[in-house]
Structure formats: structure tokens, C-alpha cells
Computed example of a mutant assay.
Amino acid sequence: MNQLVFDDDIYNTIRHNIKKCRKEKGLTAAELAELIGRSHDFVRQIESEKVAYNFSVETLYRISVALDVSLDKLIEK
């Protein structure tokens, strides 16, 4: 059986990918927040490496739809 490898820092991987994809789309954190129905501070906390803020699968899904990227793209290392 193959050894499974888990990303021990998955939240930071996702944070980095959200911020990268958002910038590639030319959106501000405030614009993304409006698209997903959350506050600007909420999106800033998600993207911050200083805040250990966890988010729901629903929020991750909303972000992927708003950024027009797959969930896979948001979790890839």
C-alpha cells in the first residue's frame, strides 16, 4: 500500500492560493467579499498568515465559484 502524504499546513496553502487567484482575477479583497456575501475583514482574515482563522467548506466553495477556479486549484501545493 502506498504511503499517504498529507499537507500539514493546508490552511496556509489555501490562503496563499486564494490570494494568488484573487490577484490574478484583478479583484480586491473587498470585491471578493462582496461576491461571496461575506465581510471585507472576513476575507482579509482568511488570506492572512498571521491569523489562524479556519473557514467552512461552504466558504471555500463560494470563493472557488467567485474566482472561477476549481476547489482542486485552491488546495494544491
Results as ranks from 00 to 15, higher is better:
52 A>G: 11
55 F>K: 06
55 F>V: 02
58 E>M: 10
42 F>H: 13
41 D>A: 15
44 R>E: 15
46 I>W: 05
40 H>A: 14
49 E>K: 15
54 N>G: 11
36 I>L: 02
40 H>N: 15
61 Y>V: 03
58 E>V: 09
49 E>V: 13
41 D>G: 15
47 E>R: 03
56 S>G: 00
40 H>S: 15
56 S>V: 01
55 F>E: 03
47 E>V: 03
63 I>R: 02
40 H>M: 13
52 A>P: 13
39 S>C: 07
34 E>M: 10
48 S>Q: 01
49 E>F: 13
58 E>F: 11
44 R>A: 14
50 K>P: 05
51 V>T: 08
36 I>P: 01
57 V>Y: 04
35 L>K: 15
53 Y>R: 13
51 V>G: 02
41 D>F: 14
61 Y>E: 06
44 R>W: 13
56 S>K: 00
58 E>P: 02
55 F>N: 05
49 E>Y: 14
60 L>S: 00
54 N>R: 12
58 E>C: 08
48 S>N: 04
50 K>V: 10
38 R>F: 10
40 H>L: 13
61 Y>T: 06
38 R>K: 14
45 Q>Y: 13
43 V>H: 09
60 L>A: 02
37 G>N: 04
53 Y>C: 08
51 V>M: 06
41 D>L: 14
51 V>Y: 06
52 A>M: 13
37 G>V: 08
40 H>E: 14
45 Q>F: 12
38 R>L: 12
35 L>R: 15
46 I>E: 08
52 A>F: 11
43 V>Q: 08
57 V>T: 07
